[in-house]
Design a protein around this nucleic acid. Structure first.
Lengths: 196, 196
DNA sequence: GTCTATAGTTCGATAGAC
DNA sequence: GTCTATCGAACTATAGAC
């Protein structure tokens, strides 16, 4: 309704460098360290240029989230279409959680509604895609006496991958190897050891 | 080595009110909103008084974490000594994760070493206590064909409780009920339905 | 597309009065 | 124990020159 006049092009190389710098600062020092001055300094430009591409800091965060979401969706699509989709999803989930960016965005989402909405939409879309592609595969597998629905397995993969990333980053290790073994056992029962 | 002269007493009622206000602000607007001015305003005192009790903002955060850690340890001890320790631990874990404070501290820990150290120590102590009290109980239960060690079960409880809290706060719901059913099925096989 | 300059805020932390 | 007053620094966002 009242966005100022000029806004930088979406395909600009400088814009991409600003997003890179934002991710880097967020990883190293947390979202609170992301300021127009700081991002400008990392990129080698002036603060005013940051505001030229992103009117507000929230716009900058949203752009980072959207870019990563697109990349992540493509990678997941590739993972799910391979010969061992569950193992691939597990590796991808651990990697996604491992960067630490996810936790920063979650914390950000706690008090910025636009960001919470964007993250929730991405996460829901991602799980929907997993379910569409993998749901049948799970139902065809005998998982023993457990109440393990396809949905539950996907939630377990997401949960445990995040916990492992978190606890490892804190230097904890009690139970992580055993939990990994349990999850990978499940995955192998569904994917098979080396089918296809 | 160079901390200024005067520091407020640990038993002060005002000090406790400052900690309360800090938690409240952190929950409502995130850790970045915690400033000496803001906490002072919520408490009805001046910013200088905040610095009288806590020389730096990090000291303030640490005090909040320590206070909650002590409360949490006591509650866990009580939960683990009851008739259905696993169900009690599960409920406690969901509640701990549900407040959102945990995620704020985790994000804070990403770039403040003293805070990361405090959180890691608390989490490790907590899991150690769980393992000491509950380890034997799990080993005496037949959990079927799964590679479910005592450690893994505790990690699953921690993981899933956090995920449920997170995803519910984002408005997601795919798979949460099914995953809860799976976890509670495990707990019941260990605790029994209504023993003792 | 990128810059200089700047107005208007807000913050951490301290000194010192009461 | 609590306050007033303050220094120095950092931040967002905009206007406007180049």
């Amino acid at each position: 309704m009242s966005k100022p006049r000029r806004v930088g092009n979406e395909t600009s190389a400088t814009r991409a460098r600003l997003l890179d710098a934002t991710e880097q600062v967020m990883l190293a020092e947390g979202y609170a360290a992301v300021t127009s001055r700081r991002v400008a300094k990392e990129t080698g430009v002036t603060p005013a240029l940051v505001h030229y591409y992103f009117s507000t800091i929230d716009d900058l965060f949203l752009a980072v989230i959207r870019r990563r979401g697109e990349q992540s969706a493509k990678r997941q699509e590739r993972a799910l279409s391979g010969p061992q989709p569950f193992h691939a999803l597990w590796e991808l989930s651990k990697e996604r959680a491992g960067t630490g960016l996810l936790m920063e965005f979650v914390a950000l989402a706690n008090h910025r509604k636009v960001i919470a909405a964007e993250i929730a939409e991405q996460a829901a879309d991602s799980r929907k895609a997993q379910l569409d592609t993998l749901g049948d595969l799970i139902e065809r597998t005998d998982l023993g006496p457990d109440d393990l629905s396809p949905e539950a397995i996907l939630v377990l993969i997401a949960s445990v991958s995040r916990t492992i990333a978190l606890e490892e980053s804190l230097g904890m290790d009690v139970g992580l190897a055993q939990t990994t073994a349990f999850i990978e056992g499940l995955l192998t029962r569904i994917d098979g050891t080396d089918e296809r």
